[in-house]
Structure formats: C-alpha cells, structure tokens
C-alpha cells in the first residue's frame, strides 16, 4: 500500500464514521505532477531519497510506528487547508521570465540548430523539476533557488535561451524576493530533499548568470 493509499483508507474510515476527512494535494500518484506535498517525520516527501510523497510506500515504516505528517512550511506557501498549501508563487516566478519568447507559428526546422548531447542532457536534467516546492520546505531560509536555478539553467544551456538570458535571471530573482522566498546560504538541504535529484550546481549556474547579467548591464 502506498502512503497516499493509507490516507485514502483513513479518510474513507473518517467519512463512514461521520468525521471530516483530511485534505491533501495529489493527482498523478506517480511522482511527476508535483502536487503531493507532505512533510513526513520532519522530512519533505518522507524518508526515501529522491522520492515524492505519492511514491512512498508503507513498507518504509514498521508496524505500530507513529508517523508525524505536516504541510510544507514557508512564508511564500501559505497553508490553505490541512495539508494543502498555496504554491502559486512558483507560477509567478515562471511568469517573470521562465520561458523563451517564441510565438506559435513557423519556427526553423528542429534539426537546424544541433545541440551537443552533453548540453542537451544537462538541460533535460534541470528541466526534470516537478515544481513541488520540497526544496523550499526543506530550506531553513525558505529559499526557492533550486527551483529557479533549475529553470534558469535549462534555458541558459540551450542556444534558444540565449537572447533573453540576462533579463530572465534578473526578473526571476526579483520575483522570488517579492514573493517572500529567503536567500540561499548554500546548506544543500534542497538538493538532499529534491525528489528529482536536481543538482545544486544549478544554483551555482544561476548565480553566475546573475553576476554576468548585473555586470554587463552596469557596463551598458
């Protein structure tokens, strides 16, 4: 039985007993939509490494264990009910620049720009972020640098992302501040918690992109 199926059983029982069930976010139940979000025994997404709450299995626990479950805690993610939080701040960080400005229409042939396999693979590894927010929940500063770093890296590693490189990083960082995410003090808790193994080198790349953008805009 999966951890969330355990919640289903619990809720079903609560309902049949006339109690209110416990509200939690979930949808795909296979570790890809990023909806599920529980702090389990103090750890976002629970005890297994590189795993989401929905992929956690009850075999991770002993019979009779007491399990403590809490919602994500961060100023930028207000709790909305029981174990559910509001993560719309992430959408607004993406709105600030997490895209390539290309309209639907007639782009060049997909093979017109070859991209070396390593850059393509690195970009993919960064793009694997599911936007769950565990990195923020794990960080003592509630920083969103791993999330933002992943997006900035993906687009910085690809030639298509080049033209908007400077404005993207500056705007996304400004939006994170505005949303109330804290600053990064490089404790690495985010990387250790991330279900998708997003590497902390993405934060280093964001910092480098940011310095470059600031320096070059000062020169201009």
């Amino acid at each position: 039985m999966s951890f969330l199926e355990m919640f289903d059983v619990l809720n079903e029982r609560l309902i049949e007993e006339g109690e209110d069930p416990i509200a939690f976010d979930h949808d795909c139940r296979e570790g890809i939509c990023g909806a599920c979000s529980m702090v389990i025994d103090g750890k976002p997404h629970g005890p297994w490494a590189q795993n989401t709450t929905c992929q956690l299995h009850m075999r991770a626990f002993q019979d009779g264990d007491t399990i403590i479950v809490e919602p994500w805690r961060a100023k930028a993610f207000p709790v909305v009910k029981d174990l559910m939080v509001d993560r719309s701040a992430f959408d607004r960080v993406i709105q600030a620049g997490g895209y390539i400005s290309v309209n639907t229409g007639n782009p060049a042939d997909a093979n017109a720009i070859p991209i070396d396999k390593k850059s393509a693979d690195d970009a993919f590894a960064a793009a694997a972020c599911i936007g769950c927010g565990a990195c923020v929940a794990a960080c003592k500063n509630s920083s969103a640098m791993l999330f933002a770093g992943a997006k900035v890296s993906q687009l910085a590693l690809l030639p298509q992302g080049d033209p908007e490189r400077k404005t993207r990083v500056i705007e996304m960082v400004a939006q994170m501040d505005k949303e109330g995410f804290g600053s990064c003090t490089a404790t690495g808790a985010c990387e250790a918690t991330c279900p998708k193994g997003i590497s902390i080198t993405n934060i280093a790349r964001l910092n480098k992109e940011y310095m470059r953008a600031i320096l070059s805009s000062e020169e201009a």
Binding site: I100, A110, I113, P114, K117, A120, D121, F124, Q160, G161
Partner: peptide, 19 residues
Amino acid sequence: IDQCVAQGVPFAREYGGLL
C-alpha cells in the same frame, strides 16, 4: 517538433547534436 524545440523542450539527442 519545430515549435517545441524553439521553446526549449530538451528532447533526447544523438552525439552529433541532432534529435
């Protein structure tokens, strides 16, 4: 495919850099 590549979708590539 052209549209998605222009958006920065990181499809799998061969060593020569092509899709």
